[in-house]
Design a protein around this nucleic acid. Structure first.
Length: 111
DNA sequence: CGCCTGACGTTGC
DNA sequence: AGCAACGCCAGGC
């Protein structure tokens, strides 16, 4: 598989399953993978995920629905524009209706 | 080989 | 209710 590292690949796998117009949180993925405090690790994996074309890191936000990692994208607005382009409204780097667009891997993911 | 930093989350004050 | 510190783990220097 292209995913050389296991837990990195796991994160990529889950993130790739995020449906268009939906977002999830680092902690949700971490908890889904069994990484208790791995939320940081998920974000760290996202940093490497930027090399993965099929990993929509822009659909992953923090627990508050804030686009904390937007600065890591090509442009500081790429993340927000990508989300808005998919139908997710973002205001001041914060996802609006976060509860509605939130995609829970443990509940909705059928892998 | 050891120290620092980092796309978070939770608990305590 | 808002702010601060801690915890966890891996990669980079």
């Amino acid at each position: 598989m292209t995913e050389k590292q296991n837990y990195f690949g796991l994160v990529y796998q889950v993130v790739r399953e995020i449906p268009k117009g939906r977002v999830t949180s680092y902690g949700a993925i971490a908890h889904y993978l069994g990484l208790k405090s791995g939320a940081r690790m998920v974000g760290y994996a996202m940093n490497a995920a930027h090399t993965m074309p099929d990993v929509p890191a822009h659909r992953v936000v923090n627990r508050q629905g804030l686009l904390t990692g937007r600065h890591h994208f090509s442009t500081p607005t790429a993340m927000q524009e990508a989300l808005e382009k998919e139908g997710v409204r973002v205001e001041k780097d914060q996802v609006q209706n976060f509860e509605q667009v939130f995609w829970n891997p443990e509940t909705e993911l059928t892998i």
